[in-house]
C-alpha cells in the first residue's frame, strides 16, 4: 500500500464531490492518518462538471500544490466522460471507480483497473436525495474504501455519522456500507 494516496473526484455541481473528499479525509483522520481535502473552485454552477481532490498519508503532508497524477479517480456521473478524459494523469494501473449500472468490462480504459458501483441506485433505494437528485457521494466513499483499503468501512461510517446526525446520518452510512459490499472490480 502506498504511503501517499492521491485521489481525484469528478462529478457535477450538486453531487457532493467536495463533501466526499472531506469525508474520506475525516475517515483517515479517525484512523490517526493525515489528509488534505482539496476542492477545485471555478465559475461552476449546479450541474456543471466539477472536481475535487484528496491526499491521504500516514504522516503529515506539507505540500499544497495540486494533484496531477492520482492513484485513484472516482467518477460520480459517467456523463462526464463525454466532455473530458477522466483518466488524464492517472498512474499506470491506477484505479477508476464509476457510478454506473454497467459492468466494469463495459468501460474501455486500457492500462487502468476499473471498478463499478451503482451509487445512484443505492441512493434511490434508501431515499437519499439532495435538491431532487440522488445523493451518491457517501456511497462513492464507501466504494473507494473497499477497492483501495486506504480507510476502513467503519471509519467511513463513523465520519458520515459525525457529519449528519440522526436518520440522515444512518442512511448515508448505510449507503457507504452497501456500496462497500457491492462494488464490482474488473
Amino acid at each position: 500500500m502506498p504511503d501517499l494516496w492521491e485521489v481525484r473526484f469528478h462529478g457535477r455541481g450538486g453531487q457532493g464531490v467536495v463533501t466526499a473528499s472531506r469525508i474520506l479525509v475525516e475517515s483517515a483522520f479517525l484512523e490517526g492518518k493525515w489528509g488534505q481535502s482539496i476542492p477545485m473552485f471555478g465559475a461552476e454552477r449546479r450541474g456543471a462538471p466539477v472536481s475535487a481532490f484528496a491526499r491521504i498519508s500516514s504522516s503529515e503532508i506539507r505540500r499544497h500544490s495540486q494533484i496531477y497524477n492520482p492513484d485513484v479517480v472516482a467518477v460520480f456521473d459517467p456523463k462526464i466522460l463525454k466532455v473530458l478524459d477522466v483518466s488524464e494523469g492517472l498512474k499506470k494501473n491506477g484505479l477508476l471507480i464509476f457510478n454506473s449500472v454497467k459492468g466494469p468490462e463495459e468501460f474501455d480504459f486500457r492500462g487502468f483497473r476499473v471498478a463499478v458501483v451503482d451509487a445512484s441506485g443505492i441512493a434511490i433505494k434508501l431515499g437519499l436525495y439532495f435538491a431532487g437528485f440522488p445523493a451518491v457521494n457517501t456511497a462513492m466513499v464507501g466504494a473507494i474504501a473497499k477497492v483501495t483499503g486506504m480507510v476502513s468501512l467503519n471509519s467511513v461510517m463513523n465520519s458520515i455519522k459525525a457529519n449528519w446526525s440522526g436518520r440522515i446520518g444512518e442512511l448515508n452510512a448505510e449507503a457507504a456500507r452497501i456500496a462497500y459490499n457491492s462494488i464490482k472490480v474488473g
Binding site: R12, G13, R45, R46, G47, A48, P49, K79, I80, K82, V83, G132, F133
Partner: peptide
C-alpha cells in the same frame, strides 16, 4: 463549452 452536460 458544451454546457448541455450540466442538464438534469
Amino acid at each position: 463549452g458544451l454546457t448541455g452536460i450540466w442538464r438534469s
